[in-house]
Design a protein around this nucleic acid. Structure first.
Lengths: 135, 135
DNA sequence: CTTGACTCCGTACCATGGTACGGAAGCTAT
DNA sequence: ATAGCTTCCGTACCATGGTACGGAGTCAAG
């Protein structure tokens, strides 16, 4: 998997080539030297394990709810000494996740109520709006 | 709280006036008659409990992860006889929430690892990328 | 040494869910 | 009856996170 092209990197990371390029534009992934370079444009960039780890991290951090801007900061912090900041970001996000998870669990509860009530009586509309009344 | 203006409705629903208007444009909220109507434009629209319930439902359904398009369908279903479809949407969303919640819990776990590892050793960078390695 | 696939890059376009602007008309308090 | 806040409405703009296009260059295989 080492020393692959952008298509290989993208595939290994489970994203499209354009997405990799987008992350590069955002500064989240680096642009390895274009090797070969006979003509005016230089050659083709080649990517390694590090790039893949970075790409995978970006995706994981996204599911953790970080924005791409925040992920940029995290990637910078990964190579910096600012432990304080890293901890702060982590803790902040944990709190946000706690809240988000609770919110989703509440929503799921409402949906279960809806599914249940909907199955219960066999005529008339399901009480969709009512299922969310309260919380 | 009944028979209020758009600003009252918005406030009661915890959104801005422009958001209410946006939902109206999307067809999620109705446009009550403009009452008064001496001049060419008619009067001012007034909103009641039903509108507020609808608005609150929209917000709840959003936190459940429904898109506004889906919410439009739900609102239509609330007044229709298609129990099947309502159930299907609910079950589908419950499954999506199960997955999402699991995902967020995994992310939280990684973040806790990060916070922990970050607190552990007192020099050098926090292993941010590594904290998400694996899962 | 050409063909065909892939790369590079800038730029444009997209969906989602809003948020803002600005003029005209409506309402309310003084 | 007039000042000053709202409402109404169309239209424009925004942030986020991509996705697509197209021309020029590169590379491997036949």
């Amino acid at each position: 998997m080492k020393n692959t092209t952008i298509a290989g990197l993208a595939k290994a990371g489970g994203v499209g080539v354009e997405t990799v390029r987008y992350y590069q534009r955002r500064g989240l992934l680096g642009m390895p030297e274009r090797s070969g370079g006979v003509g005016l444009g230089g050659g083709i960039r080649r990517y390694g394990e590090d790039d893949l780890r970075r790409l995978r991290f970006i995706r994981s951090a996204q599911t953790a709810g970080f924005t791409l801007d925040e992920i940029g900061e995290l990637l910078a912090l990964d190579a910096s000494e600012d432990r304080q900041r890293a901890q702060a970001l982590a803790k902040e996000r944990i709190a946000a996740l706690d809240a988000k998870i609770a919110e989703l669990e509440a929503a799921r509860k409402s949906l279960r109520r809806l599914a249940h009530d909907c199955a219960a009586n066999t005529s008339g509309p399901c009480p969709i709006i009512a299922a969310f009344d309260h919380g």
